[in-house]
Simulated scan of single mutants.
Amino acid sequence: MWHLLEPLHALHYYAPEAFEEAAALGYGVGERWPAYFAWRAAPLGAAGTARVASAFYSFSPAMVGRYVPAAWEVAAPGDVLAARLRAADRTLRAVLGDGAGGPAA
């Protein structure tokens, strides 16, 4: 199942549309980690380092601390969630097409 769904999931973190939405919120261009932690942690609300580190168990707490809670100084979690939804919608439409007619030209 992972092999089938991971390509769709990974699009969200690497697609130009995701970087554009992150930049529109104020996350810097050129470094992916600030937006990455904001995208993933936003459903937790304005969570601090300890909560995010426990939820993101594969990341070093020091790395989490470098980007969280600074992520919430750039944009509120609700704004990040809305931008994440826009990024996912735009990315999937670019890849799969805008409706039943097939991929976009």
Score class of each variant (00 low, 15 high):
residue 26 G to K: 04
residue 42 A to I: 01
residue 23 A to F: 02
residue 91 T to G: 08
residue 70 A to R: 13
residue 75 A to D: 04
residue 31 E to R: 14
residue 33 W to Q: 14
residue 77 P to E: 03
residue 68 V to F: 05
residue 22 A to C: 11
residue 102 G to H: 09
residue 63 M to T: 15
residue 11 L to W: 11
residue 36 Y to G: 01
residue 74 V to M: 03
residue 70 A to L: 02
residue 73 E to Q: 14
residue 43 P to T: 06
residue 79 D to H: 05
residue 57 Y to A: 15
residue 36 Y to D: 08
residue 93 R to D: 08
residue 99 G to E: 06
residue 61 P to S: 07
residue 18 A to R: 13
residue 15 A to S: 12
residue 80 V to W: 07
residue 22 A to S: 11
residue 92 L to W: 15
residue 29 V to D: 09
residue 6 E to N: 10
residue 18 A to L: 10
residue 17 E to S: 12
residue 98 D to E: 14
residue 91 T to A: 15
residue 101 G to R: 13
residue 25 L to M: 00
residue 54 S to K: 14
residue 9 H to W: 12
residue 10 A to M: 11
residue 57 Y to W: 14
residue 23 A to C: 01
residue 27 Y to F: 15
residue 32 R to G: 12
residue 4 L to K: 09
residue 60 S to G: 03
residue 104 A to K: 08
residue 61 P to L: 02
residue 83 A to I: 01
residue 9 H to C: 10
residue 56 F to G: 02
residue 62 A to K: 13
residue 9 H to N: 12
residue 53 A to F: 09
residue 27 Y to L: 00
residue 25 L to F: 00
residue 95 V to N: 02
residue 58 S to I: 08
residue 99 G to R: 10
residue 83 A to G: 01
residue 85 L to W: 06
residue 97 G to M: 11
residue 56 F to Q: 08
residue 26 G to I: 07
residue 88 A to N: 05
residue 105 A to P: 15
residue 29 V to N: 04
residue 77 P to L: 07
residue 50 A to C: 02
residue 59 F to E: 15
residue 53 A to V: 10
residue 35 A to Q: 05
residue 100 A to G: 13
residue 15 A to F: 07
residue 89 D to N: 04
residue 94 A to H: 08
residue 11 L to K: 09
residue 48 G to T: 03
residue 85 L to H: 12
residue 55 A to C: 08
residue 17 E to I: 10
residue 17 E to G: 08
residue 65 G to V: 05
residue 58 S to W: 14
residue 69 P to D: 03
residue 83 A to W: 03
residue 95 V to Y: 07
